[in-house]
């Protein structure tokens, strides 16, 4: 790990001490949770180039399985683990038939998946509590340690995110990361090196789903309340926007995108519906003028300054 990264993580660990109010820390915690889901999306969309609008659906599966498990008396970590397994299974079920499809067909299939998950959460009332959701979910904890404050949650979530970043970096620097990018850049050439590109895409989607479920499960334990609307298509689009804003295919970009688009709506709350108009216009502007996101733009700026 490079020294400036270490400094970054250390600074991040001090954040709750710098942020005065509990509300600000809560927003920061939500940013970490979103960052987890976006990091996952980066595997399948950023690296492997497969459109995935099902990320919120996977997060929903993760949140509800964790919540139900914990409410049924399982230790939190075990419920979370179960959630990851279920989400991984769901990703295989979705990906095996659909990852052969080309771009916008896949987009529709994943949107359809997200809608189905949302409808099931909404209408399977005996299990999911319907539109009123599940309340009084046991908090994040392991053994005798239980997360009690927003600041404690920050440290736990930050540690999880650090681990998630580490894993993402290892995948990126391994044959798998290379294979994902190769599949996105030139699939036929990739398969003619002997690479099973369908399998590579499946692994990418599975990693995406597991990250999303981790995000959802921790959300359930942090907020201690889940409802279907938190995992609808709007959330899927938001996660996608975070990825594009930060810089598709960049781990740092995922973190930046998640931070910006989590904090911004809170900071601009006074705009009401105008915020959503601004958000839509902002996404269009990013796509048109900064298609490789904040990280790509910064890199280009740096190169220009370096040369000129």
């Amino acid at each position: 790990m490079r020294p400036w990264m270490l400094i970054g993580w250390a600074l991040a660990a001090c954040l709750p001490l710098l942020l005065g109010s509990g509300y600000a820390v809560q927003v920061a915690d939500l940013a970490l949770l979103n960052a987890l889901a976006v990091l996952g999306l980066n595997f399948v969309t950023g690296y492997a180039g497969q459109v995935n609008f099902g990320q919120a659906g996977f997060a929903g599966i993760g949140a509800y399985v964790t919540a139900l498990g914990a409410l049924a008396g399982l230790p939190f970590w075990l419920a979370l683990l179960a959630a990851l397994v279920v989400a991984a299974g769901a990703s295989l079920a979705l990906g095996l038939p659909t990852l052969r499809l080309r771009s916008f067909y896949l987009a529709m299939a994943t949107i359809g998946f997200g809608e189905i998950v949302h409808l099931v959460l909404l209408h399977w009332e005996s299990v999911t509590g319907g539109s009123s959701g599940l309340r009084q979910i046991p908090p994040i904890g392991i053994g005798r340690f239980v997360v009690g404050t927003d600041a404690q949650a920050w440290w736990v979530l930050l540690a999880v995110l650090a681990l998630a970043v580490l894993v993402a970096g290892r995948v990126r620097r391994s044959w798998l990361g290379r294979a994902m990018i190769a599949t996105a850049d030139a699939e036929i050439a990739a398969s003619l090196t002997g690479l099973d590109t369908l399998r590579v895409k499946l692994v990418a989607l599975m990693l995406a789903a597991v990250y999303a479920a981790l995000s959802g499960g921790l959300y359930a334990g942090y907020v201690r309340y889940v409802s279907p609307d938190q995992f609808g298509n709007q959330q899927a689009v938001l996660l996608f926007s975070m990825l594009v804003l930060g810089g598709t295919g960049s781990i740092g970009g995922c973190l930046i995108g998640a931070a910006v688009l989590t904090v911004l709506p809170e900071a601009l709350r006074f705009l009401h519906a105008w915020y959503m108009v601004l958000y839509g216009a902002g996404v269009v502007a990013i796509v048109l003028f900064m298609p490789d996101g904040v990280v790509g733009a910064a890199r280009r700026l740096g190169r220009r300054l370096g040369v000129g």
Binding site: W175, R178, A190
Partner: peptide, 11 residues
């Protein structure tokens, strides 16, 4: 690029 070719399906 060359490493993708070298690894092929043997990852």
């Amino acid at each position: 690029n060359a490493r993708v070719g070298a690894m092929g399906g043997h990852g």
